[in-house]
Amino acid sequence: MNPQQMSGLEIMQAMCAGTLPAPSMSETIPMLTEKVELGEVHFKVKADQRHLNPLGGVHGGFAATVLDSVTGCAVFSMLEAGIGYGTIDLNVKMCRPIPQNKELIAIGTIINISKNLGISEGQIVDEDGKLYAHATATCMIIRA
């Protein structure tokens, strides 16, 4: 099916199933879509040597990018075919350093969706539920 005729949920589910390619950003910041439901998405993420700051720790931009992606995709999962979105506000809180070479889970969930705005939240956690970073995002819904 043509992605332009698919809803956001259908596109995200096709990426999760591997029938549509992942966005190229997932090559820069390793993000693998693991679960997609209406208003909720889960990514497996892992920072590596490409994501380090001058001190040798994982750069905060890694968490910010992952959280921007997962919150945006939660909004996208709510949109009809042909409707786009763009982040207009992202508020990120770093709770502890992101470890290098450890698989983490990024979860995005919808808080509210209206005609013009989608509000969502995201978190990066480990397998035990330990919180590494949290974000809220507001996305503008773009109707062509």
Score class of each variant (00 low, 15 high):
128 D>K: 13
92 V>Y: 05
41 V>L: 07
3 P>K: 05
126 D>I: 02
39 G>F: 07
52 L>P: 04
136 T>S: 09
112 N>V: 01
102 K>G: 02
25 M>E: 13
81 A>Y: 11
44 K>G: 05
45 V>D: 01
30 P>G: 06
92 V>K: 09
2 N>L: 14
51 H>N: 08
59 H>A: 12
52 L>W: 04
24 S>N: 00
44 K>Y: 12
126 D>L: 01
8 G>D: 13
35 K>W: 08
60 G>M: 03
39 G>Y: 08
43 F>G: 02
136 T>P: 02
29 I>Y: 09
76 F>V: 07
121 E>Y: 01
111 I>N: 10
73 C>A: 15
87 T>G: 07
99 P>W: 00
94 M>H: 11
18 G>D: 10
81 A>V: 08
5 Q>M: 15
106 A>E: 05
63 A>N: 14
134 H>S: 05
126 D>G: 03
7 S>W: 07
78 M>Q: 15
79 L>Q: 02
101 N>W: 02
27 E>A: 10
134 H>T: 07
14 A>V: 00
130 K>S: 13
74 A>S: 06
134 H>G: 00
105 I>F: 01
143 R>S: 11
48 D>Y: 09
24 S>C: 00
136 T>Y: 04
23 P>L: 04
123 Q>R: 15
5 Q>T: 15
8 G>S: 14
87 T>M: 09
